[in-house]
């Protein structure tokens, strides 16, 4: 089992502490949702876990080895990362966009090897984009584009998948489909870490929820509670259902 862990990670940007002494451990097979108010440090934590940001103090370990000791290509072969609001700078086709997810495995020169075609087809199918395969990616709708980026992230079937707000801007149906896809990925043995703003979907699909407030871990548990939502977000919430129909109705702002 692969373990990704953060040990006393602190990050300071421009004199402001973004992460304070964050520690957590994540195992393959888990689907971890990171929730918290704007500016809580979710994106920073995800970048640090992805090995793209060197913490000011503390360290991130993959299988007890510091991330910094791995080469970028080695890390890329095992971990996929999708930032918040991913961009595409050239109007390339959806198929080529998804193929970019295989960059670490491609030969330095020459065309895309035929052997990668099935992986690309599968990723497109999982993200419901088969019909858009040859379309120019920059002409996709916002939701389609977000799914294309998700397909780009999963095409290499990474051991660790770190995604920053993957369902922001998706309609309810595709948001649910994407969450189901991420759960399925975890069930197949990958470690999935996603920052989310949809508390209901986080509670339903994630096997663990980390609540981050002001750069520190407020809670790291199986699920969310009304009390946690109040303390983290300053919002009164009403919980209902359980398991797959667990949900939160947000009522009104509350005093923290």
């Amino acid at each position: 089992m692969t373990i990704l862990s953060a040990e006393n990670v602190s990050v300071t940007k421009g004199g402001r502490a973004i992460l304070r002494d964050v520690s957590c451990q994540a195992h393959t097979g888990e689907f971890i949702a990171v929730v918290g108010p704007n500016g809580a440090g979710k994106s920073t934590l995800l970048s640090a876990l992805a090995g793209l940001l060197k913490p000011g103090s503390g360290r991130v370990l993959l299988d007890a080895k510091a991330l910094g000791a791995l080469s970028m290509a080695q890390l890329a072969a095992r971990r996929a990362y999708l930032p918040q609001n991913p961009r595409l700078e050239w109007p390339i086709s959806v198929e080529r966009l998804v193929a970019l997810g295989l960059t670490a495995r491609l030969p330095a020169v020459g065309e895309l090897p035929e052997s990668f075609a099935p992986a690309i087809s599968r990723a497109l199918e999982l993200c419901d984009l088969t019909a858009q395969r040859d379309q120019t990616a920059t002409t996709l709708s916002g939701g389609e584009f977000a799914r294309a980026m998700l397909a780009r992230a999963i095409v290499s079937t990474p051991q660790i998948l770190i995604v920053d707000e993957p369902i922001t801007g998706l309609d309810p149906r595709h948001a649910m489909a994407s969450m189901t896809l991420l759960s399925r990925f975890a069930a197949e043995g990958a470690l999935v870490i996603a920052s989310l703003h949809d508390l209901t979907l986080a509670a339903r699909h994630a096997s663990r929820v980390i609540v981050l407030v002001d750069g520190a871990v407020l809670s790291d548990a199986d699920s969310l509670t009304e009390e946690l939502i109040h303390r983290a977000f300053g919002v009164r919430a009403l919980a209902s259902g359980a398991g797959d129909s667990r949900g939160f109705t947000l009522l009104s702002p509350s005093e923290k």
Binding site: A50, S71, M72, L75, A76, R87, L88, L100, T103, L106
Partner: peptide
């Protein structure tokens, strides 16, 4: 001529290119 692959990955922006091993 050796920059081709990295330039392709860079069409996703710097963060994603780095995450892809560039």
């Amino acid at each position: 001529a050796m920059t081709g692959r990295a330039l392709d990955a860079l069409s996703l922006g710097e963060a994603q290119a780095q995450s892809l091993g560039v």
